[in-house]
């Protein structure tokens, strides 16, 4: 494992180049270009504000104004998009880059890493939009926002571990891709993004509470909600457990990936 990390350090330039290739390619040929990375979340948060602030107007005890719901939702959906896009794209990344694996002596682990990091960059570009949305809607932010990198680190480890698993297994079982599309939708609804974890029906049901607590994404998304929306110290104990789970997943995921590595050349 330590060897592998050293190896990865050697490939940092390649990783950097591959990520910037993805980013450059994404908006190449569009008029707004890189600005789209900001435009997408801006449009999203505008739509949420209209829908929740003017039409739905949901009323929870902890949302002083119903329009705050739009930034609550946005706080959750931003890291969720990073997670779900990474998972879905990692299912395809080895097959899509088959020629690199088959024809070049290429460090394959770069590919799932490229996916997760590229989506992380999109997430990072969304953060200023999130902050501005808070300011415009008049909801104050606390100093805890500065702890954002901690939540991101936990999410990165967890997502990366899953991406190693998925990318390696999809080479052999192509059905995983189709299963994931459905699974991710389901996963979205069992993660407190459109509703807060403190929502009454959840707190009143032992089963729902336990079920949601077993989902690592619950604690990761909640961490962002604590830092931004509630402006408090995150539930650090749960977050530490999530990190440990993430590290185990990362270790096992990488091990599986490494074990299957030699089969990629013949199977992609």
């Amino acid at each position: 494992m330590l060897e592998s990390i050293k190896e990865l350090y050697r490939y940092r330039q390649l990783l950097f180049v591959m990520v910037s290739r993805e980013l450059k390619a994404k908006y190449r040929g569009t008029v707004l270009g890189f600005f789209w990375s900001f435009m997408n979340p801006i449009l999203l948060v505008t739509v949420y504000s209209i829908v929740f602030g003017l039409i739905f107007q949901p009323k929870y005890a902890e949302m002083e104004k119903s329009i705050y719901y739009s930034v609550f939702f946005f706080t959750g959906i931003l890291p969720w998009t990073w997670f779900s896009s990474s998972v879905l794209e990692s299912a395809n990344v080895l097959i899509a880059h088959g020629s690199l694996i088959k024809k070049i002596n290429f460090p394959v682990e770069i590919l799932p890493m490229m996916v997760v990091i590229t989506n992380m960059v999109h997430f990072i570009l969304g953060v200023p939009v999130l902050i501005i949305a808070f300011l415009i809607l008049g909801k104050s932010l606390s100093i805890w926002v500065l702890f954002l990198p901690i939540a991101m680190f936990v999410q990165f480890i967890f997502t990366m571990g899953l991406a190693f698993f998925i990318s390696a297994l999809t080479v052999h079982f192509r059905d995983i891709k189709d299963i994931l599309v459905n699974l991710i939708t389901l996963w979205f609804f069992v993660t407190p993004i459109i509703y807060p974890f403190s929502f009454e029906p959840i707190q009143n049901s032992k089963f729902l509470k336990l079920f949601l607590s077993l989902n690592p994404m619950t604690h990761i998304v909640e961490a962002y909600q604590y830092l931004f929306f509630y402006g408090t110290l995150p539930h650090y104990k749960k977050l530490i457990v999530t990190l440990i789970v993430g590290l185990i997943l990362f270790y096992l995921g990488y091990k599986l990936f490494d074990k299957l590595r030699d089969t990629f050349v013949e199977e992609v």
């Binding site: 020629s99 690199l100 070049i104 290429f106």
Partner: peptide, 15 residues
């Protein structure tokens, strides 16, 4: 070692 097996590996058409 340099292998001329696949030329232009990783080229992205849009770039």
């Amino acid at each position: 070692i340099s292998a001329l097996i696949e030329l232009g590996a990783g080229f992205h058409p849009e770039i």
